[in-house]
Amino acid sequence: MSTVVNRSARPGFAGGLLIAAAVVLAGLLLVLPLVIIVREALASGADVLWDNLTTRDSRQALGLSVLAAAAALPVSLVVGLSGAWLVAYHRFPGRGLLLAVSKIPISLSPIVAGVCYMMVYGRRGWFGPWLVEHNLEIMFAVPGIILVTIFVSFPYLLNQLVPLMQELGSDEETMGDQLGAGGWTIFRRITLPKIKWGVLYGLLLGNARALGEFGAVSVVSGHIRGKTNTLPLHVELLYNDYNSAGAFAAALLLAVLALITLAAKAIVARRFRQTTSP
């Protein structure tokens, strides 16, 4: 660890006040909403919760969320690894631009991303007439949801790996190359072991984003119940239907998925620090 905490220093009165304020804020903003989700979900009893989780629409929403997140993973992996390798180990014109472009999905409001996809793949979009002619349904169908999920989640791994690989440097890879190892061998035996925890960490970040995505998916989904709803859309829809018990049940499911991702991330982060610390 690079930071050293001086454990003997006691916070003064102002310090204590600040800590108390932080704890209260964290409680009000983070813990309380989570507690309420659990309480409300269980308010009508465990069997009602189970019934709400196993309706046709809930199962479909969960399945589609998991499918979209799973489809985004390999894209993140391929784009993240090759992109980071290119940007971290090489100098070429347009490198800065590429780095900036890779951050667009993170900084752009998701709803704008959804509208952009609509303008490209929608019936009135650029590819619209061609897609209609060939009977290809992209928008308001599963492929469109997968596409926008990929868009919002792929940069996380890339942006995680670039600084990591820059910090670790490419000396070992150069050495391997000089000793006659092939590209694949270098990647498999040298690069991958160096960055594997970083890869996992980046994938988990992207996965959390993919599972929780609302805005972009909302634009391209069409909200067809039992067909094109993801879990976050399903929560909103049940809530608008005055079905609080169902909405909180779905929200609880989403929270549990997030907590699992969070726990995995914490474990990976610990290993990650151990392997990268000197």
Partner: peptide, 8 residues
């Protein structure tokens, strides 16, 4: 709007 954009 969604139907005009292709919602079937």
């Amino acid at each position: 709007r969604a139907i005009l954009d292709g919602l079937p």
